[in-house]
């Protein structure tokens, strides 16, 4: 069990400047797992992902990835280690085409064949991107940009995918397409840590979940158990 853990976060405190957002958060993701972190707006879900991705420096605690401590590494090094972070803001390169954005996603890869292979995989996952490969990222719709962001994140052949709010601001159909894509990735044995506000949908598709409230983990367990949990049903499912 111990060496199967891909990501292990222990007692993490994190935040911005004097503002502490996360308090003593512990979470782990095993290889091949599909795990979610749910919670209300402002609970610190994005801050958690940013701390793992190296965009926010943790105040205390450990973050281990494949057995190496990464809590003091900058974002670009963490990406090179195999963690891909797909942010809520997407952070696409608006003045570049779809294809150039994907090429940037493979910045850490030097093998040209591998890049083509990854790009084919992304186009297979999101055929809409293939049609629009010459379009500037900044001129695309919200759903297409989200697909591009996920596609760009996949270009570096990550072993762990951190996805922040993929359903935010999307039409139901597009949301379904994004979740389908994540399912496909799961079947390809990509490890995914998903952060979502859409609790019902998320708990239906993931295997395990954590509930974060006011910067602290209040519940954890199998998704099927969480969906039955009294607190979750009251607070998130409105039942």
């Amino acid at each position: 069990m111990e060496n199967q853990l891909l990501l292990q976060v222990e007692n993490l405190d994190s935040g911005y400047g004097f503002l502490q957002v996360l308090w003593n958060v512990s979470l782990s993701v095993a290889k091949g797992e599909y795990v979610c972190l749910v919670g209300p707006n402002g609970a610190g879900k994005s801050t958690f992902l940013k701390s793992v991705a190296g965009l926010v420096s943790p105040m205390a605690g450990r973050i281990d990835f494949s057995g190496n401590s990464i809590s003091r590494l900058p974002g670009d090094k963490i990406c090179r280690m195999g963690i891909s972070y797909i942010s809520e803001e997407l952070n696409l390169f608006a003045g570049m085409t779809v294809q150039e954005n994907l090429a940037m996603g493979a910045f850490t890869i030097n093998d040209k064949r591998k890049i083509v292979e990854n790009q084919d995989f992304v186009f297979e996952l999101f055929p809409a991107l293939k049609e629009r490969r010459r379009q500037l990222a900044g001129t695309m719709s919200g759903g297409e940009r989200k697909m591009l962001a996920i596609g760009r994140g996949l270009m570096s052949t990550p072993s762990l995918l951190l996805v922040d709010e993929p359903s935010l601001g999307l039409a139901p159909q597009t949301t379904a397409a994004v979740f389908r894509a994540l399912d496909t990735l799961k079947q390809k044995e990509v490890t995914i840590l998903l952060v979502e506000q859409n609790v019902t949908k998320t708990l239906q598709v993931t295997e395990r979940g954590y509930v974060l409230e006011k910067g602290k983990i209040v519940l954890a367990g199998a998704s099927t158990d969480l969906i039955q949990n009294e607190h979750v049903r009251k607070a998130y499912l409105g039942i």
Partner: peptide, 10 residues
């Protein structure tokens, strides 16, 4: 174009 995005891709 996007410094954070650049860091995210390594």
């Amino acid at each position: 174009q996007d410094e954070t995005g650049a860091r995210m891709v390594g």
